[in-house]
Simulated assay, not measured.
Amino acid sequence: MNEQILPESFAGLSPELVLDAVDSCGMYCDGRLLALNSYENRVYQVALDDQAPVIAKFYRPQRWSDPAILEEHQFVQELVAQEIPVVPALEGANGETLRQFLGYRFALFARQSGRAPEIGDAATLEWLGRFIGRIHAVGAIKPYQHRPAIDINTFGVEPRNWLLQHDFIPPDLLQAYQSVSQQALDGVARCYDRAGDVALIRLHGDCHMGNVLWLDTGDQAGPHFVDFDDSRMGPGIQDLWMLLSGSRQEMQSQLTDILVGYEDFFEFEPRQLYLVEALRTLRLLHYSTWLAQRWTDPAFTTAFPWFNTQRYWQDRILELREQVALMDEPPLWPV
Rank of each mutant, 00 (worst) to 15 (best):
Q254C: 08
I258T: 10
M251I: 04
H224S: 12
R248D: 06
T256C: 02
G234M: 07
V260H: 14
D219V: 07
D230T: 14
Q252D: 10
L215A: 12
F225A: 02
L255R: 11
L240Y: 08
L243G: 05
L215N: 14
T217P: 00
G236W: 02
L244W: 06
L255D: 10
M242E: 05
G222E: 03
D227T: 07
V226R: 03
D257P: 04
M233A: 15
D257K: 06
G246F: 06
R248T: 09
G246H: 10
D219S: 07
Q249S: 09
G236N: 12
D216F: 05
Q254F: 04
Q220F: 03
P235A: 10
E250A: 11
Q220D: 14
I258R: 04
P223I: 03
R232E: 14
Q254E: 03
Q252N: 11
D216Q: 10
D229F: 08
L240S: 02
G234F: 01
G236T: 13
D230A: 13
Q249T: 01
L244Q: 01
G246P: 07
L244F: 02
P223L: 03
D227R: 10
G234L: 11
F225Q: 05
G236K: 12
I237G: 01
F225N: 07
L240K: 02
D229E: 14
Q254L: 06
G218W: 14
W241E: 10
M233E: 13
D257A: 15
I237Q: 00
F228Q: 04
D229H: 01
S247W: 09
T217Y: 09
R232L: 13
V226W: 02
M233D: 08
F225I: 08
Q254D: 01
I258N: 07
V226E: 04
V226M: 09
G218P: 04
I237W: 02
D227Y: 00
W214A: 03
D230F: 14
G234V: 05
I258A: 09
Q220K: 12
D230H: 14
L259H: 12
V226T: 02
M233G: 13
Q238N: 11
G218C: 12
S245D: 15
D239V: 09
G246D: 04
V226Y: 08
W214G: 01
D230N: 15
S247V: 08
D227V: 02
S245I: 04
W241Y: 15
V226G: 05
Q254N: 04
G234Q: 06
G236S: 15
T256N: 08
Q220E: 14
M242V: 09
R248K: 09
F225W: 11
S245C: 12
S253R: 13
D230Q: 15
G218A: 13
Q238K: 12
L244G: 08
G222D: 10
D229W: 09
S231M: 00
D227E: 05
I237T: 02
Q238T: 03
P223N: 10
P223G: 11
L259W: 04
R232Y: 06
L215T: 14
M251H: 05
Q249W: 06
S231F: 08
D219F: 05
A221S: 15
Q220P: 03
L244V: 02
P235N: 05
Q249R: 01
F228R: 03
M242H: 09
E250S: 05
Q220T: 14
Q254T: 00
D219I: 03
H224Y: 00
L240V: 03
S245W: 13
D229L: 07
Q220M: 10
D257C: 13
D229S: 13
D239N: 00
G218E: 06
V260C: 14
D257F: 12
D239Y: 06
V260Y: 13
